[in-house]
Design a protein around this nucleic acid. Structure first.
Lengths: 137, 137
DNA sequence: GCTTGACCTGGAGCGCACTCCAGGTTCTAC
DNA sequence: GTAGAACCTGGAGTGCGCTCCAGGTCAAGC
């Protein structure tokens, strides 16, 4: 048999590796941690951060919340609920559903606005096709 | 025949009326004007602003640019081109097309993110349906 | 004519989400 | 063991897009 090997510790990531994988900056990672968006990350004996896979997954979820327009304050609320455990799943679900509905509204509004940009673009194209007419807008 | 009437001056709007119609605040309207986003608005002899229909239409266009994520700096560039007249139509068209393409990208990204929020929501729903399993995220 | 509310200006202040800095500690490679 | 890169902290600074303020002027109704 093979000799007993040390438990293959789940590999951890340095902050530089997390920067590379998430696109967040060092400062933003520290800011998110200070703000309570991520629970205290593991440390080496020398006090340097070592991120685990679960931290990375959570960060990626936070990034999605941010990219869909959630404020830091709301992310803090969400993170706090998460930290309180399973009992808060209904609250988290409610928050997420509300955020999802807001997002749907915003996407609809963007599409409407996109359509009117298209109209404006068409207007300019026509101006270029038949020049000479006084421009109105 | 009817007696000669004074030219029915195109009715103008006070700033309060524009606030009401656009949803922009007094301060934002003045800020936009100072920033050159709208060309100097007409004034009464007493120096109070009187907006014309064309001003309102332009403001509504600016609002669409803003709502689709254009920065004030880019709106300034656009407004400046507009102020320079017909010769800049090609530049304006190019700006608008680029902005439109960015917008399409952002809408696509939002839809992708929305889909992954939906996954997360489903995950929570399943957690609630079959409680007891240790929660992972 | 007077009151009251709407409007004017320049400039300071604010909230958000980072970003930068100084000064020190730790890690890695030689 | 040492050099240099990576990392640590608290706190100050930044850019954006407004928002507020003080101290005045103007306009409309009585």
């Amino acid at each position: 048999m093979t000799s007993e090997q040390p438990l293959p510790q789940e590999p951890t990531l340095t902050i530089a590796q997390v920067v590379e994988r998430t696109g967040l900056s060092h400062d933003t990672l520290r800011y998110y941690e200070k703000a309570g968006l991520i629970q205290r990350v593991g440390r080496t004996t020398g006090n340097q951060r070592r991120y685990e896979a679960a931290d990375l997954a959570w960060l990626e979820f936070l990034i999605r919340l941010r990219e869909t327009g959630m404020s830091i304050a709301d992310m803090q609320r969400f993170a706090e609920l998460r930290a309180r455990g399973d009992a808060t799943v209904p609250d988290r679900l409610a928050m997420l559903r509300e955020h999802r509905a807001d997002l749907a509204d915003r996407i609809r509004a963007l599409r409407r606005n996109a359509a009117s940009l298209d109209d404006k673009i068409d207007h300019y194209v026509r101006l270029l096709d038949q020049p000479g007419s006084d421009e109105l807008s």
